[in-house]
Simulated scan of single mutants.
Amino acid sequence: MNYFLVKSEPFKYSWEQFNKDGRTFWDGVRNYQARNNIKLMKEGDLVLFYHSNEGKNVVGIAKVVREFYQDPTTDDANWVVVDLSPVETLKNPVSLEQIKAEESLKEISLVKQGRLSVMQLKATEFDKILEMGS
């Protein structure tokens, strides 16, 4: 299993809306590194959902329910999406400040590459963030 973190501005697509929808394709990625991370996602992989700009919190867990395919919002073949479904809301959102303060998370892309919208996490990093949110 692989682990990832995706970022969304809550006014554009919030965790609450994602839960209402029950499933979505993750579109709008226009960065090659983020796109390459989408291409690594396999069905069943777990994904942390992070509210960026407003809140700056990891708020929930999603899972990949369909592997990458052409982004339906563009004709440009460079861009792909995956389908995600919500799994669980974190009991306590985990803030960016908490993540930055945690020694074992200092190397994650959320800290090192703040603008990257889709990033891979190690299992230990994923588990640590879940522990912080329980």
Rank of each mutant, 00 (worst) to 15 (best):
K20V: 10
G60K: 15
W15G: 00
V82R: 05
G28F: 13
N36H: 15
W26Y: 12
K7V: 00
K56S: 14
R66S: 11
E9D: 14
L40T: 07
W15Q: 02
L110P: 11
L130H: 02
P10F: 01
Y69S: 14
S95Q: 15
F126V: 00
V111G: 08
P86R: 02
W15L: 04
L40Y: 09
G44A: 12
G44N: 07
M41C: 15
T74G: 10
I38K: 06
A62D: 03
V65C: 14
V6E: 05
I99W: 13
D27P: 04
E102Y: 07
T74N: 13
D75G: 07
V47S: 13
G60A: 07
Q98Y: 04
Q17P: 00
V118Y: 10
G133F: 07
F18H: 09
F18M: 10
F4K: 01
Q70P: 03
K7H: 02
L46E: 14
E107Q: 15
S134M: 04
E43L: 05
F11R: 13
T124N: 14
R30Y: 10
G60S: 10
P93R: 12
N78A: 11
P72S: 08
I61A: 09
F25S: 06
I38V: 15
K122I: 01
T124R: 08
E125N: 05
Q120M: 12
G44S: 11
V111T: 03
D27V: 00
Y3M: 01
L46A: 08
P10E: 09
L121F: 10
E103V: 15
V118W: 07
N2C: 00
Q98D: 15
A123C: 00
Q33T: 09
M1Y: 00
N36V: 09
Q70E: 11
K112H: 03
N57D: 14
Y32G: 02
L84P: 08
N92P: 00
Y50N: 00
K7Y: 06
I129G: 12
V59H: 13
Y32T: 10
R115D: 07
E9G: 03
Y3I: 01
E131Y: 05
E16H: 04
Q98H: 14
Y13W: 09
A62V: 06
N78P: 01
S52Y: 12
W26H: 03
Q120C: 01
G22N: 01
K42L: 07
E97N: 15
E125A: 14
F18C: 14
L130T: 06
V64R: 02
V58Y: 06
T24D: 04
V29A: 13
G55K: 06
F25K: 12
N19R: 12
L40H: 09
S134C: 01
I108Y: 05
